[in-house]
Simulated scan of single mutants.
Amino acid sequence: MSSVPQPPRWDVHRLPRARGRNFLVTGGNAGIGYFVAEQLAGTGATVVLGSRDRAKAEAAIGSIGSRVPGARVKHMPLDLADLDSLKASVDALGLDRLDAVVLNAGVALDRPPRRATGDGHELMFGTNHLGHFALTNHLAPLLTATPGSRIVTTGSFAAKSERLDLDDLQSTHDYRPKRAYARSKLAQMLFALELDRRLRAAGSTTLSVLVHPGGALDSLTPSRPPLHVRTTGERLSRLPLGLLVQGKDAAAWPAVQAVLDPSVHGGRMLSPRAFGLRGAPRIEPLWSHLADTTTAARLWTASRDLTGHDPTFTAPARSGGTEGPAAGPGEADASTG
């Protein structure tokens, strides 16, 4: 009797090669986004850091280059709070295909007053959700030109206990910073799932995958000077917390797997294995309110009206043969992530 071969278990420390592929990471200059970029660069891919701060992006590129010999990393100016600037940012990429984008950048405020973007949107909702919604629209042609491309959206555990107020998406009437942040992340997560439903309905090969990084602390994160420096005292004092949460290097693992793992399907959510807070990634059942398709569809309509954009994907044109990525995610050659 023959057995059906099983795909190899995903190893966060032994990533498949991806030379010839192009990945964009928004907010790739710092925090979790930096480690997503560093780990993806280790596969041989070209990684683009989307960041509004050129100096920080250059520091991140230098740090990655010092740890990944021959790293192919570059900067794309990106200000998600300025919707009118996004098309020029994408045009400046100079790419004819994009294998994956990780929608990771975000802003979090912890105290009043309520702040707004230049477009008049509440800052966290406008940046974290509306900015990525509009960016996805501008990236659609590049992603459509790449069979099997992926849109990976970074959610947050903070969104698990929140619900959207569709009558006050901009927190105009009742602004509470931490709640507004959690709702902006919930909006991103609902967007990711609604996007995948629309991609499937359109017959597109592009996948939309949702991830959340769990609990991540700077004190458990390896130093990456000058971006982040962890003292010995900080590391030792926080060691007990390592039983519950993790560093930002490990928090990057779900997004990296969502980009590279050929077994990952659209409309799924990857999260840390241990209670959604730490450990290697796994597929996590969708939280009950994430399965609310009515709210997700209404949010999409509201986002379209607020941004003037409606991300649309079509099935790629068929030619004489099926052409896959230049270097697929399932190659046997591996590198250390």
Rank of each mutant, 00 (worst) to 15 (best):
Asp96Ile: 03
Gly94Gln: 08
Pro147His: 09
Thr144Asn: 12
Val102Lys: 03
Ala145Asn: 10
Arg114Gln: 11
Ser161Lys: 14
Leu130Met: 07
Ala108Asp: 07
Pro77Ala: 06
Val102Tyr: 03
Leu83Met: 06
Ala140Gln: 02
Met76Val: 10
Arg150Asn: 03
Leu78Ala: 04
Gly148Ala: 10
Pro147Ser: 09
Lys74Glu: 14
Leu143Cys: 06
Pro69Trp: 09
Pro147Trp: 03
Ala116Gly: 01
Pro69Val: 09
Val68Thr: 13
Arg114Tyr: 10
His75Cys: 06
Leu78Ser: 00
Leu109Ser: 09
Arg114Val: 11
His75Gly: 03
Arg97His: 15
Asp96Gln: 14
Ala81Val: 03
Pro69Tyr: 08
Pro69Asp: 07
Asn128His: 08
Gly155Val: 03
Leu83Arg: 10
Phe125Pro: 00
Thr117Arg: 02
Leu103Arg: 05
Pro113His: 12
Arg72Leu: 13
Pro141Ser: 08
Val101Ser: 01
Pro141Phe: 05
Ala134Gln: 02
Asn104Cys: 07
Glu162Thr: 13
Asp79Arg: 11
His121Phe: 15
Ala81Asp: 02
Leu109Met: 13
Val102Ile: 12
Gly70Phe: 07
Arg72Gly: 04
Ala100Phe: 06
Glu122Gln: 14
Arg115Phe: 04
Leu143Gly: 06
Leu83Asn: 01
Leu95Ala: 08
Pro69Thr: 10
Glu122Ser: 10
Thr136Met: 06
Ser156Gln: 05
Leu123Ile: 15
Thr154Asp: 02
His132Pro: 02
Ala88Gln: 13
Phe133Val: 01
His121Gln: 11
Pro147Cys: 08
Leu78Met: 12
Thr153Ile: 11
Ala108Gly: 06
Ala158Trp: 11
Thr153Gly: 02
Ala105Lys: 07
Leu80Lys: 07
Gly94Ala: 04
Ile151Leu: 02
Pro112Glu: 05
Leu93Glu: 01
Ala145Lys: 11
Leu78Trp: 01
Phe133Asp: 00
Glu122His: 09
Pro113Tyr: 12
Asp119His: 14
Thr136Trp: 01
Thr136Val: 11
Gly120Gln: 02
Arg72Lys: 15
Asn128Pro: 01
Pro77Asn: 07
Ala71Tyr: 07
Asp96Arg: 15
Ser156Arg: 10
Pro69Ser: 11
Ser161Pro: 01
Leu78Asp: 00
Phe157Gly: 12
Asn128Asp: 09
Leu143Ile: 09
Gly118Cys: 04
Glu162Tyr: 09
Asn128Leu: 07
Gly94His: 11
Met124Leu: 05
Asp110Phe: 14
Lys74Asn: 10
Arg150Thr: 04
Ala105Cys: 08
Glu162Arg: 15
Leu139Ile: 10
Lys74Gly: 15
Gly65Asn: 12
Pro112Gly: 10
Asn104His: 12
Val90Trp: 02
Ala92Gln: 12
Val102His: 02
Gly70Met: 05
Lys160Cys: 08
Asp99Val: 03
Arg67Gly: 05
Ala159Gln: 11
Met76Gly: 04
Lys87Glu: 15
Phe157Tyr: 12
Asp82Ser: 13
Ala134Lys: 04
Lys87Pro: 00
Arg67His: 13
Leu109Ala: 10
Pro69Asn: 08
Gly118Phe: 04
Ala81Phe: 01
